[in-house]
Design a protein around this nucleic acid. Structure first.
Ligand SMILES: NC(=O)c1ccc[n+]([C@@H]2O[C@H](COP(=O)([O-])OP(=O)(O)OC[C@H]3O[C@@H](n4cnc5c(N)ncnc54)[C@H](O)[C@@H]3O)[C@@H](O)[C@H]2O)c1
Ligand SMILES: NC(=O)c1ccc[n+]([C@@H]2O[C@H](COP(=O)([O-])OP(=O)(O)OC[C@H]3O[C@@H](n4cnc5c(N)ncnc54)[C@H](O)[C@@H]3O)[C@@H](O)[C@H]2O)c1
Lengths: 263, 263
DNA sequence: CCGACTTTGTGCACACGTTCACAAGCGGTA
DNA sequence: TACCGCTTGTGAACGTGTGCACAAAGTCGG
């Protein structure tokens, strides 16, 4: 993998910048947003697929193949890639390694992002032991808990620190991403401490809405919400099926399974 | 009042080869009055907030208060609620319990959705032990793993079954949601077996793109992707900051991190 | 060197989601 | 009852994201 030197090149249009004078209304928004958030999420998926391809010895790939592997529309894939520049060859496809390096650059993965996990319970243990983070450029460098029985105990190779050391430890270990895996009532307080320790990105597993300053980015993973979305689809499907059956006046068992719909 | 139709518009990254499912007329597609997916996700959040309010003794709440608690715009909240009907009182607000019951109805939570977890490793243990699922109407009724040392061992009160029993057990316990927490290489095979067992909803933690039939709903939770999105924001922010500094001809070390920008 | 073929990159139209703004409706009050 | 202030519900404007379809740009065989 060729590490490209600085020499900014033309480089994508990170900031169109054409229309500088914008609305500086009451709510101060960030500047022109370059890449749609949805596209960023997909770029991360493409990167994972491409990494697997590199390992498999693939050197070139077309948008059709890559989009199939990533589970998206090929037009969407090409549009997503166009946000980061034109690195394909018409009639041929994309050089896998080139694409990987450019996506990594855009996602900011040329830099390591140190992670701290707060709340070393069931979930915290799993996260601390997970090898998928360090291998993708997100080394876990600190663990925190209030439980005195846990402090000092190594989990995943890292000793747990007491929550009261959070500001000091986060600063000294240059933590840039904080993961909250505490019970819900403690989440906001932990979040506040992370913020005051200078952490600007937070991944929150506790089912609570966190209040943070504008400059802090929060993403939440709420499994109950995921379940409920699935539940919604089940219900909708059941509604449709029953409506259809009512319309047809017919009861037709669908192949796979005998799903019993209670009247 | 809201005339709600079945609305048969699924989509979700279907294969391009899908034959036209609805031949109701190529021109008009007016029937779909479904609830936007994004709104469904938020409804689940509102539900959680409202449940907390019920416990807190709150009986009535305005869109302004609820939206603040849920971290969204009040107009968006009202629009989201309007998808499920008109249950507010103008000049007063919403009755909390009424709202809870209607959201639960729409999300299909009047029915219990039994959950099976496959892959009882680090993450699987955490999920099996998590009390947040049963309490929200998602009882975990089955656990599966290939590891013979695990089969029979109770985790979170449920003995682990061997993966080979998956079809039989899922059917007999009426599993409607399958959770995949196996290593990535095993995920697709596990998914296929869940589908053949009649499971129509899957929550996937393995970082792979699952291929499923159209009638199966998949949601993925990819923590590495979440991290990378955060990383992207860090990078973008650094870019902006450096651009601004360059414009000002000033170099200012920002507290948290020493981002070195090559000239 | 040319022409056939392949695949990218993108303009455009459309669908979806968000936000604004305000009439309609309700409870309380005189 | 008539008025008033408050909050909902929603039409419409607006912004964002998606998908189509095709010209541009490249490769390859002759
Ligand atoms: N376990 C899961 O699979 C799962 C799934 C979805 C969501 N969650 C959420 O993740 C969070 C953690 O879940 P869990 O199952 O690991 O819970 P847990 O009770 O097993 O662990 C919580 C840990 O946080 C620690 N803690 C409590 N207060 C703290 C504080 N102020 N500062 C630092 N540490 C503190 C506790 O000592 C404990 O070790 C919860 O909010 C839960 O709702 C968990
Ligand atoms: N641990 C985490 O915090 C974390 C975070 C994000 C994603 N993930 C993903 O979740 C998955 C599980 O992670 P983990 O840390 O629990 O892994 P793990 O290795 O601890 O556990 C995996 C379990 O799956 C079982 N298994 C393997 N093949 C199986 C099969 N064919 N059928 C049934 N069970 C099988 C193994 O016996 C093992 O018990 C992985 O795909 C991982 O990438 C984990």
């Amino acid at each position: 993998m060729a590490v490209k030197r600085g020499a900014g090149d033309e480089v994508v249009t990170t900031t169109p910048a054409t229309a500088a004078p914008d609305l500086d209304g009451p709510a101060v928004r960030e500047r022109a947003r370059a890449i749609p958030e949805a596209a960023v999420a997909r770029l991360a998926v493409y990167l994972r697929v491409l990494s697997g391809m590199v390992d498999g010895g693939v050197t070139t790939i077309s948008s059709e193949e890559l989009s199939a592997a990533a589970g998206v529309n090929s037009a969407k894939l090409r549009k997503d890639l166009s946000y980061i520049g034109s690195y394909g060859t018409r009639g041929v496809g994309y050089d896998v390694e080139v694409l990987v390096s450019h996506i990594e650059r855009i996602l900011g993965l040329t830099r390591k992002h140190s992670v701290a996990v707060v709340g070393i319970g069931n979930l915290g243990h799993a996260l601390a032991n997970y090898g998928g983070f360090p291998s993708r450029g997100f080394p876990v460098v600190a663990l925190f808990d209030v439980d005195d029985d846990l402090t000092g105990v190594p989990v995943g190779g890292i000793p747990v620190s007491h929550i009261d050391e959070i500001e000091q430890v986060c600063a000294s270990r240059e933590v840039s991403i904080g993961v909250i895996a505490t019970p819900p009532p403690a989440a906001q307080a932990v979040c506040d401490r992370l913020v005051s320790a200078g952490v600007q990105c937070i991944l929150n597993f506790a089912p609570v809405v966190l209040q943070v300053p504008d400059h802090v980015e929060v993403r939440k993973v709420d499994l109950a919400v995921e379940m409920q979305i699935l539940s919604f689809h089940v219900a909708r499907r059941a509604d449709e099926a029953s409506a259809e059956q009512a319309a047809n006046g017919m009861v037709n068992g669908v192949g796979v399974e005998g799903v019993v719909i209670r009247p």
